[in-house]
Every structure is written in structure tokens, then in C-alpha cells.
């Protein structure tokens, strides 16, 4: 233990870290952006609800889980019947089933768990949110069991080489779909009547109602939009990792929440930026944490980065990167 040779060997690892390889760096960046675009979709749901109700919907992560579970049930059933459908179409059928189910769920959660508490102290809906999470997790466990559910190998397995790194068809599809969904959401919020009503309600529900806006409907629509995005994100995550699990919504939800806070909660562009950044930070962090700590911490510490980022943001810039208001409550 005390021999000079041992110390030298340990020292060498500190002094001469592996040189930065561009292809590995690029690969981590690609993986991070893919993951980050999924985080962004989920983060949008947190931020939209917060923007309007100043409520953190902690059940939102579970909606991604339900989205994954429902779509996997449909996909597995379709694969089981042996129908002659292209894999992408089967997956799409899964998504198109999960989206309305999750929208209904989001609508129901708001009606049952949050609306009756609209004028209650802020802690009350936070507690019901945790209650709803527990109910959804346990409900999913009862229906689908405690085991990991595999995503059937129906998706294209093609991959492409970019500067020594690979990007798979699934990764390309995930990024393109999330970008299109985010663009569609921005259009909706900026250009449509519903979007204007949402922004007006976020600024002042009372004045919005004086304009003839049915604030309750706007709130329901907000929950349903966020849940639709979460459903898609849930399917993406399970397709990406090749599995789903009744507990998967917890960590995904917390990370997406961290992404929303990083971007500035309540700010849509912030949620997208925060999601992408968090994905990249996590991926690069996991890739290089071994080198940076001389092998003391390994890439299984990947999940730590989201919370590290969350703490840093809350300490140094509580309003987030693009936020104006300080999150001083909830």
C-alpha cells in the first residue's frame, strides 16, 4: 500500500488523462442531444402548468411512464398477433393510443387533484401531486407488473457514421419528432387563439376571464397538451433504452423538472433549452466523469448531474437561464 511504485501508478493516472478524442466527444454530444430532446418534451409540460397555475405537477413524470406502458401494451399486442405491418407503423399506433390516454389522464388529474385545491395553500396541491404519483405508479405495477418490459425489436436498426461517431435511425427519428412537436407547440402558443388565451391566463387569470376566456378550459387544455407531449416522450424513452418499467417516470420526471428549472420555469423556450442542455451535460458528464475523478466515480453516476445542475441553478440563478421571475415558492 505504501510502496513507492503504487503511488507512482496512481499518480500517473492523475497526471496523464486520456487525450480528448473528438469521435468520442461527438458521440457523447449526439447521445446527449437525443436524450435532451426527450427531456425537453417532458420539461415543457412542467413549465406550461407552472406558467399558468404556479403549480409544480409532480405527477407529470408518471404520465410519461403511463404513455410508455400503454404504447408498449398496444405494440406488444400487435406484434403478438403477427400482423403484417411495418415496425414503424406499429410503433406509431402505440404512440397514437398513448397520446389520447395520457391527455385524458392529465385532464382527470387536474380535475380531481388540483382544481378543488385551486385556492388552498400552496402545499396542498403539492401533496396531492405526490399522492397521484404514488397511485399511478402502483396502478401501473398492478396492471403491468414489477418487471422490466422489453420494447419489441420492430424499429429500424440502421446507423450512420458522422466523424467517427454513430447516430442510429431511432436517434434521428427521436430528435426530428421532438423538434417538430416543439415547433408545433410554439406555433400554437404564439399564433392561435388558444395560445393567446394561454398566455393571457398565465399573466392574469382574472383579466383573461374579463376578456371572455374560460380559464378552466384553458387550464384543462394546458394539462392535456403537456400530457400529450409526455406520452410521446415516454414512448421515445422506452424505444431508446429498449424497455419500460412502472418506476421509470420518477427519475425522468425529476430530470425534466430540473431541465425546466435550468431553463427558467414558466418559460417555454427555457424548457427546451434546459432539456437539451441537461441531456448534453449528463451525457458528457457520464462520459468524462471517470477521467475527471481519476476513475473514482464511474459513468453510473450519470443520474447525479441533473441534480447537481438543479442545485447549482437554485443557488446561483434561481430564475433559470431564460426566466424572469424567481422561483420563490413551492
Amino acid at each position: 500500500m505504501d510502496s513507492a511504485g503504487d503511488r507512482k501508478a496512481v499518480g500517473a493516472r492523475f497526471i496523464a488523462p486520456a487525450p480528448l478524442r473528438m469521435d468520442i466527444f461527438l458521440q457523447q454530444l449526439i447521445n446527449g442531444l437525443v436524450l435532451g430532446s426527450v427531456y425537453a418534451l417532458v420539461a415543457l409540460g412542467y413549465t406550461m402548468v407552472y406558467g399558468i397555475l404556479e403549480l409544480i405537477n409532480f405527477a407529470h413524470g408518471e404520465i410519461t411512464m403511463i404513455g410508455a406502458m400503454v404504447s408498449l401494451a398496444v405494440i406488444s399486442a400487435l406484434v403478438g398477433t403477427g400482423v403484417d405491418m411495418p415496425g414503424v407503423l406499429i410503433a406509431l399506433t402505440g404512440v397514437l393510443t398513448a397520446v389520447p390516454v395520457c391527455m385524458a389522464l392529465g385532464y382527470g388529474i387536474e380535475r380531481v387533484a388540483y382544481r378543488p385545491l385551486r385556492h388552498a395553500p400552496r402545499l396542498a396541491p403539492l401533496i396531492t401531486a405526490i399522492g397521484v404519483s404514488i397511485v399511478l405508479q402502483n396502478g401501473a405495477m398492478l396492471i403491468w407488473g414489477r418487471q422490466y418490459i422489453p420494447f419489441p425489436p420492430i424499429l429500424p436498426t440502421g446507423a450512420h457514421d458522422i466523424g467517427g461517431a454513430t447516430i442510429s435511425d431511432v436517434q434521428i427519428f427521436i430528435v426530428m419528432l421532438s423538434m417538430s412537436l416543439m415547433a408545433a407547440l410554439m406555433l400554437l402558443v404564439q399564433k392561435t387563439k388558444l395560445g393567446r388565451a394561454m398566455r393571457a391566463t398565465a399573466q392574469s387569470p382574472q383579466v383573461a376571464s374579463l376578456m371572455g376566456v374560460n380559464v378552466n378550459n384553458v387550464i384543462s387544455a394546458t394539462f392535456m397538451l403537456g400530457s400529450a407531449l409526455a406520452a410521446v416522450a415516454g414512448v421515445m424513452v422506452s424505444a431508446y433504452y429498449g424497455l419500460a418499467h412502472y418506476y421509470m417516470g420518477f427519475l425522468l420526471g425529476l430530470k425534466a423538472f430540473s431541465a425546466a428549472v435550468l431553463g427558467g420555469i414558466g418559460n417555454l423556450a427555457g424548457a427546451m433549452l434546459g432539456g437539451l442542455l441537461l441531456g448534453v451535460i449528463e451525457s458528457l458528464g457520464a462520459g468524462y466523469i471517470g477521467d475527471l475523478t481519476g476513475g473514482f466515480l464511474g459513468s453510473h453516476y450519470q443520474d447525479v448531474f441533473a441534480f447537481f445542475v438543479l442545485i447549482l441553478v437554485l443557488v446561483f440563478r434561481p430564475s433559470g437561464l431564460l426566466g424572469e421571475r424567481v422561483v420563490d415558492r413551492a
Partner: peptide, 13 residues
Amino acid sequence: ALVPEGRGIFGRM
């Protein structure tokens, strides 16, 4: 139509 005290305009629009 009520024009509320303090005007209540949507400042970020």
C-alpha cells in the same frame, strides 16, 4: 366590459 383598477394589461404581449 370592465377596465380594472391598475389597468390589467397583458404586459408580455
